[in-house]
Simulated assay, not measured.
Amino acid sequence: MSANRSTAGTPFEWRVLLTPLVVFLLLFLGFPVLVDLVYSVSQVTFQTLRSPQIAGFGNYLEVLGDDAFWRAAGFSLRFGILTALAECGIALFLVILLAPLLEKHSWLLAPLMLPLMVAPAMVGLMYRLVLHEFAGPLPYYLYMWFGDTPAFLDADSAFWTVSVVETLQWTPFAFLLLYVAYEAVPEEVRQAAGLDGAGGWDILRYIDLPLMGPTLVVAFFIRFIDGFRVFDNVYTLVGAGPGGVTASLPIYIYEAFFKQGAIGKAVAASVLLFVVSFAVLFALDWAGRRFSTREAN
């Protein structure tokens, strides 16, 4: 009994161990959050950063009444859901297709991960050059071969173009998570199901997918969160796009801050984005705990 008590540690010892973490959070997170909250309810410019004038919740009302904010929110939501579904679906297909090959030649996993090594901003710049309607090689060869080429970055196509670019870069991340989950399924279970007459589709449907389910959900929500807050590759590829069709919430905040000089408005929008992100994470944590409790019972 005393050994268990000494291993667990006393409350005082836990407070001592947690003190550096608490101090770090207060210094590097708490202070910026406090400043943002003050700026979000203030009239402030670059000249008055040190002396903001408290003005109430006008910045929040301005943001919530701005059509551009809701268009950016709609883009972020659609972009996050679409790319997360595409990345997880393609990754799951590739895992099932390539698992036997990777089992024999595990070194092939390295080139599959290469897109993750490129900075998203560089990916955006690369595809901007590739898809440029005047200088890009892809439009050039499409026009030379077929006599016409789509405008990849116009108002009608920009959303799908940035979605494809995002999917191409981040599918390997989902693939890595799902491949690890697929390899973790005990081979004895598959063999036992095969002896009972289960075919490949039955094994996938009733054994592999249920056991991979938690990882699949985690992969989807990680990619959704990352897609919802996308900035760098979209901004370097097409910016806010024609008519703001590719303006995500981070791009909206960036342009309000640096291009419009509306610091209070930009900070208020960032606070709203933080609240929504926190609510999503809280909901995911609650759902995960409930799922774990149900599985335990």
Rank of each mutant, 00 (worst) to 15 (best):
L284I: 13
L237G: 01
G199D: 08
A279Y: 09
I207E: 01
F282W: 07
E188W: 10
L237K: 11
K259H: 08
A198P: 09
L204G: 05
A269E: 05
R190W: 13
G239H: 04
I251E: 06
E188M: 12
F231D: 03
F221D: 02
V189C: 13
A279L: 14
R289E: 15
I207R: 01
K259G: 00
D226Q: 12
D196V: 06
R223F: 04
D196Y: 08
I207Q: 01
A266I: 11
A268I: 04
V218C: 04
K265Q: 15
Y252K: 08
V217Q: 11
S277V: 12
Q191C: 00
G200S: 13
V271H: 02
L272F: 03
L273P: 00
D232P: 02
V275K: 06
G197H: 12
K259T: 03
V280R: 00
L281T: 07
A240C: 04
P186H: 08
P186M: 09
F220R: 14
S292H: 14
A296V: 07
N233G: 01
A262S: 15
G241K: 08
S248W: 01
L273I: 07
R290F: 08
A198R: 08
F224C: 02
G241A: 12
V238N: 15
L273G: 03
W286R: 15
S248V: 05
L249I: 15
E255S: 13
S277H: 02
S292Q: 14
V280E: 07
E295Q: 13
R294S: 09
I253L: 10
F231C: 05
A266K: 06
L211H: 11
E187M: 11
V238A: 14
N297W: 12
S292W: 03
G244C: 08
S292C: 04
I207A: 01
G227V: 04
G199V: 01
W286E: 10
P186E: 11
V234G: 00
A240N: 14
P250I: 07
V267E: 02
V276C: 01
T236G: 00
F231L: 05
N297H: 07
L273D: 07
A279V: 13
V275N: 02
F220P: 13
R190F: 08
S248H: 09
L195F: 13
I203C: 10
I222E: 00
L272E: 12
R294L: 15
G239D: 02
A192E: 10
V271Q: 13
S270V: 05
W286L: 14
R289Y: 11
G239L: 00
G227W: 02
L284R: 02
A193P: 07
Y252M: 10
G199P: 05
A256G: 14
P250D: 06
D285H: 00
Y235F: 15
S292L: 13
S248N: 05
F220Q: 10
D208R: 15
P250S: 06
A193K: 04
G243L: 04
G243Y: 09
G239Q: 04
V234I: 15
E187L: 12
S248P: 11
P242W: 05
A266N: 05
G200K: 04
V276W: 03
S270G: 12
S270Y: 05
D208H: 09
V217P: 00
M212Q: 06
A240Y: 10
M212A: 07
L195Q: 13
A269W: 03
W286P: 00
L273Q: 12
D202S: 12
V245H: 11
G194D: 13
G194Y: 09
L237M: 14
